[in-house]
Design a binder for these strands. Structure first.
Length: 370
DNA sequence: GAGTCGTGGTT
DNA sequence: TAACCAAGACT
């Protein structure tokens, strides 16, 4: 650790810092569904859901997920389609695939008990350095660091750490600092309090220093540089991708859907057949038709353009032209290609852009055929 | 280390 | 409004 950070910690009254921080958490913490007990499974599920996701977004998903899959065993034996459906709309879908995979491993290898050693828990799929520390401290009371974005922001201010927190290597500096600072009497509350402070007081912009329970311990506050920290370099802009999608129905009004590949973007979710357009926007219908001919030997009658969907991902932007159409020929359904009714379609997990597309289609159909 | 992987809220 | 952001992990 850099000598100036070490010096900063040496000059701090650590016991007083812990007491102020934990005391604040005891009285000011939010009531959250995953804080009702310390069931390692519930802590685990909540931590996976909370990765890069806001608390308010997670709450309803967490409650529903635990109603559907109350225990390790329930999730281990659950139908993968139903698990994905429960995650629909939460994003970062590999999280739930890894979670179920890891839960199966815990069920078999550890008799359904979540391991409590750093080595074993870190070996589980989807459990990285942060999640391992969070589960170990919150569920098992182990004094392990759980360094997320909140913790890096809070500690960068308290300890005046000028490292770029966008660099993956920076996390270790903060883990070292937490090992020096963490309360061994209550590691769970210490870690949670750092994150709660980051969420409620020590916010990215305009932190509420006058309400902060540990401002007396904060170097950035003393120096008046809390708005200059943390240092975080910007990310690059997303790339634009042009797509055409077809919502095609057969003679009985059933809609053609297909399952996306098991890896990559939106893996294993369902979609309406979609093609990436090769920068020839005038031939959208042709490219869509060619795609169907080549992949399914189908020649759908492509009808009206229903509309346009713009969807922003972390690293790219989709612009989708949506077409309706009719399927005339015989269609051989496979596990990846299905014809479903408007009622049945509710059982399949769709990414948000396709949910919007379906809504547009149903409104279009209602308006077209009163 | 840099790119991949969602979505919705905030500034 | 475009950029930024939110309890990261994996390749």
């Amino acid at each position: 650790m850099a000598t100036d950070i070490k010096k900063c910690i040496d000059n701090m009254d650590i016991k007083s810092f812990q007491d102020d921080l934990i005391g604040w958490f005891v009285s000011e913490q939010r009531e959250l569904p995953w804080r009702k007990d310390q069931d390692p499974y519930k802590v685990w599920v909540s931590e996976i859901m909370l990765q890069q996701t806001r608390v308010d977004t997670v709450i309803p998903y967490f409650n529903r997920f635990l109603e559907n899959f109350p225990t390790i065993e329930a999730l281990a034996y659950a139908d993968e389609e139903k698990v994905l459906k429960a995650w629909e709309g939460l994003g970062y879908y590999s999280r739930v695939r890894n979670l179920q995979s890891a839960v199966k491993e815990v069920n078999e290898k550890y008799s359904g008990r979540v391991p409590d050693s750093p080595k074993e828990i870190s070996a589980l799929k989807g459990v990285g350095p942060y999640t391992a520390g969070a589960i170990l401290s919150i569920a098992y009371g182990k004094p392990e660091p759980a360094v997320d974005g909140n913790v890096m922001r809070v500690l960068s201010r308290i300890l005046l750490i000028w490292e770029d927190i966008a660099r993956p290597a920076s996390r270790k500096i903060f883990e070292t600092a937490v090992r020096e600072l963490i309360s061994h009497e209550n590691p769970s509350y210490f870690n949670q309090a750092l994150m709660e402070l980051g969420a409620l007081i020590c916010t990215p912009t305009s932190p509420s220093c006058l309400l902060c329970p540990v401002r007396e311990h904060c170097e950035a506050f003393h120096e008046g540089v809390q708005n200059e920290l943390p240092v975080k370099t910007k990310k690059k802009k997303q790339k634009n991708v042009q797509l055409a999608a077809g919502i095609f129905s057969d003679g009985e009004g059933r809609i053609l859907i297909r399952k996306r590949p098991g890896t990559g973007l939106l893996a294993n979710l369902w979609e309406f057949p979609t093609v990436e357009l090769s920068l020839d926007f005038q031939r959208q219908r042709d490219q869509l038709a060619e795609h169907f001919e080549e992949n399914y030997s189908l020649a759908p009658k492509i009808g009206d353009s229903i509309g346009e969907i713009d969807h922003v991902f972390s690293h790219l932007v989709w612009n989708i032209q949506v077409f309706s159409g009719q399927i005339t020929g015989e269609i051989s359904e496979t596990p990846q290609l299905k014809l479903v009714t408007e009622k049945e379609i509710k059982e399949f997990a769709f990414p948000v852009p396709y949910q919007k597309m379906l809504k547009q289609y149903l409104e279009y159909k209602k308006a077209d055929q009163p």
